[in-house]
């Protein structure tokens, strides 16, 4: 389904943010990508739909190499990849329904998009998805009137509205409180399984990753250094991914994420 081959990206020459990453997602599963901040998780996700242009390597989705497509081809490919963002990235001044329907922008004509005149099947599907994410009746609310959890659920509906072959999810819970985080993750993973959509999920919260993912990838300094099931994510594996020395107070001062995710792996499995 998705095959990543030797994907690399350097923002400044010589310093790779993404270093020769290869892996394959052969079945519709939820793949969590963990690793310290700055490990290249976000770059990896964005290189697949080329919101960030990769320096070399390829991302192959259902047999099509996305990295070599021209701009028209890329737009077609992006229609098949739904994306969910850390800061939700809803269009604040538009209504919930407009935000959800914007997932179909790749399919409707400019004039219909301008007039908000979407096909009946899209509208009923949007209502269906709003119900699935628990936002029935919210269609006419403006996005900036919603809470964080509600916004992220609109974000999920927008991504699923594309009927995607692949879901790219970038830190979906980093801006949410723990309880809302679990709710959002549950909805996301349930829908991904139900719709048989392979999902690539960046997440710094290891306990969440362990309880919801089917497979875990670990990254460090732009390299893929772990690939296994959540059960294989032992304390040793975590130490390997995040690095023991990084846990010292001086080293973690600048990057709190590893600390909160890792400091108590025993507790994490218990959640």
């Amino acid at each position: 389904m998705l095959k990543i081959e030797a994907l690399s990206k350097s923002y400044t020459a010589g310093i790779p943010a993404l270093d020769n990453v290869s892996f394959e997602v052969a079945e519709p599963q939820v793949v969590a990508i963990i690793g310290p901040s700055g490990a290249g998780k976000s770059t990896l996700i964005r290189c697949i739909n080329r919101l960030v242009e990769p320096s070399s390597g390829s991302a192959i989705l259902n047999g099509e190499n996305v990295t070599t497509l021209n701009s028209a081809g890329l737009r077609k490919a992006r229609r098949r990849m739904g994306m969910i963002f850390q800061e939700y990235n809803l269009v604040e001044r538009l209504t919930v329904m407009e935000n959800v329907l914007s997932g179909r922008l790749g399919y409707v004509s400019f004039w219909r998009a301008w007039r908000r005149n979407y096909p009946a099947e899209d509208i009923s599907h949007a209502f269906n998805l709003l119900e699935r994410v628990g936002l029935t009746g919210f269609q006419d609310q403006r996005a900036d009137a919603l809470s964080g959890g509600q916004r992220q659920r609109v974000g999920i509906a927008r991504a699923l509205m594309q009927k995607p072959d692949l879901l790219l999810v970038d830190e979906p819970t980093a801006s949410l409180d723990p309880k809302t985080s679990r709710q959002v993750m549950r909805i996301l993973v349930e829908l991904a399984h139900e719709l048989n959509t392979p999902t690539l999920l960046n997440i710094h919260d290891v306990p969440l990753a362990k309880s919801f993912a089917d497979r875990v990838l670990g990254m460090q300094d732009g390299k893929l250094i772990f690939d296994g099931t959540p059960d294989e994510l032992t304390e040793d594996a975590l130490t390997f991914i995040y690095g023991e020395e990084d846990w010292s107070p001086e080293a973690t001062a600048g990057s709190p994420e590893p600390e909160e995710g890792i400091s108590s792996p025993e507790k994490a499995t218990a959640v």
């Binding site: 229609r79 604040e92 914007s102 922008l105």
Partner: peptide, 18 residues
């Protein structure tokens, strides 16, 4: 917000209006 609309595969004019 613009990035999210681009990610849906919308063309440049549609990115502008949404």
């Amino acid at each position: 917000q613009m990035e999210a609309i681009r990610a849906t595969g919308a063309s440049f004019p549609k990115v502008l209006i949404y």
